[in-house]
């Protein structure tokens, strides 16, 4: 591995002052499952690595009905995928965490790292954006909170400023009659990057769609909301026609590239198919108040 100096700051201000001192030549280490690969493959060449694992107060995963879910920046994907409250109330995030990498990776990798790496195909981003998560940071000018939807600016690029560290992700508590789904399409079942990812968070009011957020992964430079599809559904009665119209709108709005995992045309068509499937599953879950993953995926709604 390319040599670097190594630091274990004991406080957040100390970590921030190290980042400032090294002025762009330092990388933050939390889980390390992306950073160490990037150093080995010489994609990233930090002269200094700052391990934040000794900073107290970042390693937690907590929930209360008022503030919702709080994910500290050291919480691992393993902690997320085994958390009863995540399984019950954040089914999309649960499914995304469970399908990311391997158990070995998930025991180290953090949700915060998945976010800061800002890969267009990162699994946890679509469900967190669908759930309207907020990102909290600490930096030279103090704390900031940023809607996660506005956090990403391109592949590997975020609005994080020099010296800023992600400290927490906040995810609101879902209202009753909400269904959540994340569907990942890959070439194989495990150890795979998404060819297409679709997250839906949908709340029903009787047979009417009170709110819906549809977020697509791996089909644009950043995760993107399918707002045209959402507009077709919000405030309307649920119908198979509306679902199909929304799925087509998601297909029309996404802007994928062709790469080794799939062609742009294939990705667009899969956005249509998976958006429809995710909508049907989330409607079913919203109706039943259950986790959607007990339900077979070929069910349709009357």
């Amino acid at each position: 591995m390319r040599p670097f100096d190594y630091f274990e700051p004991a406080t957040l201000p100390e970590a921030v002052s190290l980042l400032e001192r090294f002025d762009g030549r330092a990388s933050i280490l939390a889980g390390g499952t992306d950073l160490l690969v990037e150093i080995k493959e010489r994609i990233r060449l930090p002269d200094h690595v700052i391990n934040i694992k000794k900073v107290p107060g970042l390693d937690y995963l907590s929930y209360d009905p008022v503030d919702g879910l709080k994910i500290g920046s050291l919480a691992t994907l393993h902690e997320v995928e085994t958390s009863p409250v995540v399984i019950e109330k954040y089914a999309g995030l649960y499914q995304a965490a469970r399908e990311l990498g391997s158990i070995q990776v998930r025991n180290r990798a953090t949700v915060a790292g998945n976010i800061c790496r800002a890969s267009p195909s990162a699994d946890t981003l679509p469900p967190l954006i669908a759930d309207n998560a907020t990102i909290h940071t600490f930096g030279p000018d103090g704390e900031r909170s940023i809607p996660m939807e506005k956090f990403f600016t391109g592949p590997g690029k975020t609005v994080l400023l020099d010296g800023e560290i992600l400290t927490r992700i906040n995810v609101p508590s879902p209202p009753p009659n909400t269904g959540k789904v994340y569907l990942k399409l890959g070439r194989r079942a495990a150890m795979e990057l998404a060819t297409v990812g679709v997250a839906v968070t949908l709340t029903l009011d009787g047979n009417e769609c009170r709110s819906v957020r549809i977020v697509l992964g791996a089909v644009a430079p950043t995760p993107m909301r399918a707002t045209d599809a959402e507009d077709i559904l919000i405030g309307k009665a649920i119908s198979e026609n509306a679902i199909e119209e929304a799925s087509q709108a998601a297909k029309d709005q996404c802007r994928p590239i062709s790469d080794v995992r799939g062609s742009a045309d294939y990705r667009r068509e899969m956005v249509r198919v998976l958006t429809g499937r995710a909508l049907r599953m989330s409607i079913e879950a919203a109706n039943e108040g259950n986790s959607p993953f007990d339900i077979s995926t070929d069910q349709t709604v009357d």
Partner: peptide
């Protein structure tokens, strides 16, 4: 207590 990839830990 947890399985990990030792190549991805310092």
């Amino acid at each position: 207590g947890k399985p990990i990839n030792s190549c991805l830990v310092l």
